[in-house]
């Protein structure tokens, strides 16, 4: 079933358009990756879907409801969460407080969900009272994902979760993405690390200079020599 539908999106900062006429979609329980070279507009696409940027044209639908132009705090209540690439944690708060902030809009008891997050990221549990500012990059990324998952979203948008992480941690983060997906969350992941990402993706979109240039299953993109040569660095 279709859960997120983006149609003919044109968007950018100020007067300048960065994205041109982009259409993508996401089905329930899917992992879809958006890859492409630097400056392709991948992050801009996520920010526009999540309402941080207002699109100039096009439509965003979440579970068949139009959310184009809605503000992030409204979208987050509708079941979609977003993890920015940088500054994605509250450094002076503890791990547990970061997760609690993810549940800010919940008025019910979210202690079960907190426990589920600690089960998903066992490393965080032992340090739940530690300030996040003192954590390593990989641990911060886990806190950031945990925060976004506290509302039990249907869709999770991840902006370059493996950026500036050591290779061993990159592997671990991708494993976590698969784990999160297995709990029933559909994921859109933007990545520079194209090959690793495609391996765990059901489908992928290739963006270049703000346009969609290719789309296929993750496996097919990996095997496509021309796409590999042109956009994934050989």
């Amino acid at each position: 079933m279709r859960i997120l539908e983006v149609k003919n999106l044109t968007s950018g900062y100020g007067e300048t358009d960065i994205l041109h006429d982009i259409s993508i979609n996401l089905d329930e329980k899917e992992v879809v990756s958006i890859i492409g070279p630097n400056g392709a507009g991948k992050s801009t696409l996520l920010k526009t879907i999540f309402g941080i940027l207002t699109p100039r044209q096009g439509v965003v639908q979440l579970q068949n409801e139009e959310i184009t132009g809605s503000s992030p705090d409204k979208i987050v209540r509708k079941g979609m969460s977003y993890v920015p690439q940088v500054d994605n944690v509250f450094p002076s708060l503890t791990i547990q407080e970061n997760l609690e902030m993810g549940a800010f809009v919940r008025t019910d008891d979210y202690r079960d969900r907190l426990q589920e997050m600690f089960d998903l990221f066992p490393l965080l549990k032992d340090r739940k009272n530690q300030r996040v500012g003192s954590l390593s990059g990989g641990q911060r990324q886990m806190v950031a994902m945990g925060r976004a998952l506290m509302l039990d979203p249907k869709v999770l948008l991840l902006d370059e979760p493996s950026a500036s992480l050591a290779p061993l941690l990159v592997e671990m983060i991708f494993e976590k993405i698969v784990d999160i997906n297995k709990t029933g969350v559909a994921i859109v992941v933007v990545e520079q690390n194209a090959r690793e990402t495609l391996k765990i993706s059901d489908r992928g979109y290739v963006l270049a200079t703000g346009r969609k240039v290719f789309e296929d299953t993750g496996k097919a993109i990996l095997e496509n020599e021309e796409v590999g040569k042109l956009y994934l660095g050989g």
Binding site: D73, Y82, D87, V89, V105, R147
Partner: peptide, 16 residues
């Protein structure tokens, strides 16, 4: 405290 840390992320988390 969260808003003082990072207002953008606070909004993204649904904090009013």
């Amino acid at each position: 405290r969260a808003t003082a840390d990072n207002m953008e992320l606070a909004r993204v988390s649904g904090i009013d």
